[in-house]
Design a protein around this nucleic acid. Structure first.
Length: 209
DNA sequence: ACGGAGATCTTCT
DNA sequence: GAAGATCTCCGTT
């Protein structure tokens, strides 16, 4: 498996978010590999009202101005850790939120970290995923392009476009207005059971009873 | 299956 | 002092 290099992250957040689907997020703890295939991502870009970087640089969001390929981990709602990959150049604060993975390795450890919950609820959400992989403040601003910090991402075969869905981002505050609110900057793998949430199926003549 | 509310604390106004 | 890139529990359908 080859680790994703800095050039991969030094691109438009939307491209990176799309291409992270199918790659393998790896957490190494005490020589044990815990990993999962990334199945859901969101992009946050410069000028984007939904981005933490929108109101300028602060102590929390400084990683977004850092080298692409670093991590940006922050606490939300007082109790949940969320993992981003920093992307684009230092001049352009941007990040990709990793919202869900499909568990691949270290399933026993993941089960422990998720305290007996059913496998479907192990990693299908940004905070569930970090809990499953033991990701917290200690993993903030570490280098995802090296194996030295216990967290990295490995390349994989590309998921074809026909197996990818695109939609609006989830959980944006009500301060966020258009066009950012409905910007289609969320990507997920079609029909993957570990995606956090899928839009309600639209009514159509064929599915209506 | 769906919806509402509480949890819990850092960050920024 | 308020809100937050969420999750869980508990209620009702």
């Amino acid at each position: 498996m080859t680790i994703l290099k800095r050039d991969f992250y030094n691109r438009n957040a939307c491209e990176v978010a799309r291409e992270l689907l199918g790659t393998q997020l790896v957490r190494m703890i005490n020589g044990q590999r815990i990993s999962g295939m990334i199945v859901e991502t969101e992009a946050y870009r410069e000028g984007d009202a939904a981005s933490h970087a929108h109101n300028g640089r602060t102590p929390r969001n400084t990683p977004m101005w850092e080298t692409p390929g670093l991590s940006y981990v922050y606490l939300t709602y007082g109790m949940h850790w969320l993992l981003n990959a920093v992307v684009e150049s230092e001049n352009s604060p941007a990040a990709v939120l990793i919202r869900a993975v499909e568990p691949l390795e270290g399933l026993d450890i993941i089960a422990e970290n998720r305290h007996g919950r059913p496998p479907r609820e192990w990693t299908n959400g940004p905070a569930r995923m970090t809990a499953a992989l033991s990701i917290n403040a200690e993993q903030n601003q570490i280098d995802l392009t090296a194996k030295t910090d216990g967290l990295w991402i490995e390349a994989s075969d590309t998921i074809p476009d026909e197996n990818i869905c695109i939609g609006a981002r989830i959980g944006l505050g009500k301060n966020v207005s258009e066009p950012w609110l409905s910007m289609p900057w969320r990507w997920w793998i079609k029909d993957n059971p570990h995606v956090s949430r899928v839009p309600k199926p639209k009514k159509s003549p064929s599915t209506a009873k």
